[in-house]
Amino acid sequence: MSSWARWSALFIAGFCCSLAAASDYPEAVLDIGRPATAEEVSAWDIDVRPDFKGLPAGSGSVEDGETLWLEQCALCHGDFGDSNEVFSPIVLGNVTDEDMTAGRVASLTDPAVVRTTLMKVATVSTLWDYINRAMPWNAPKSLSPDEVYALVAYLLQLGYIVDYDFVLSDENIADVQALMPNRNGMTMDHGLWSVGGEPDVVGSACTRDCDVDTTVTSFIPDYAMNAHGNLKDQVRDYGPFPGVQTAPVSSAVVESQPAEAAAPEATLMANGCSGCHRLEGALVGPGFDAIRERYRGQDVADYLTDKIKNGGSGVWGSMPMPPMAQVEDGAVAELVGWLLETN
């Protein structure tokens, strides 16, 4: 398509679909809403831009960051930010001295190399902004600016971008930006920012005897067909296209063990428990299997009720459990009863 045709198509699309402007309405519309106070703006305007507009004054050392990291971050991200247990790794090596000089991480082209945050991110402001607004996982916005500086400093040290004795501050963060390993790794040379952008790939209009390779090169092997559960149960079962049976059909009824009470999974999901606790094995907090094991047969219903309602720390490690005051009493009783096998 010629660029003239594209622009005229865009113009027509814009003309027909733009929503109305204020001039289309009585002026009184613009009286709705009120000016925000300076205090309100400063409470909510927390973003930090790549040019560091919005960055609060402060500082934090790698050493302080390490202490904080081990207390509040390591359970999900690993002591060295290298874990992929819960989230993608933040630091994992794969960055060379040449990359640091060029500001482009070459191993991004290697499919065998796991992409980490420090390989991808071009802007140090992104780390500061995100940790400040959203971390820790279960208690966002609980860190002071100095703590955020310290945590960013620790991550930068893990990536060998700064030394262990480094203290990051609003004064020197721009110097750190000039060291970010992938600082030149982003491009806006693509057509996906603007609605009128130029597509990089356009398909063929051929409709008859088209020259395409119809060899099947990839399909899901039989052994993996049930990995998402029985597909037969995921479709309307009386329509023209019922689902394929992918689960093995057992011919004999298996004698079931007098099994443990099923986990109240709906309650765990609905109340946010499963964000930090898995049925088996530790995640952010201990696994429910470990909790059940520790308290089996003990008369600790009130104690566990209090822990759920009011939170605590130090029992399973230093990661605090936040108070879950919003969980209704009935749900707490159900959870405690399940944990202590008294339901």
Binding site: D47, V121, T187
Partner: peptide
Amino acid sequence: YAAKDEASHYVDLMPDGSQRQ
């Protein structure tokens, strides 16, 4: 603004190692 979901995630890695932001 280079927010987390436009600097670490939701960037499209190209074969030459550049990331479309």
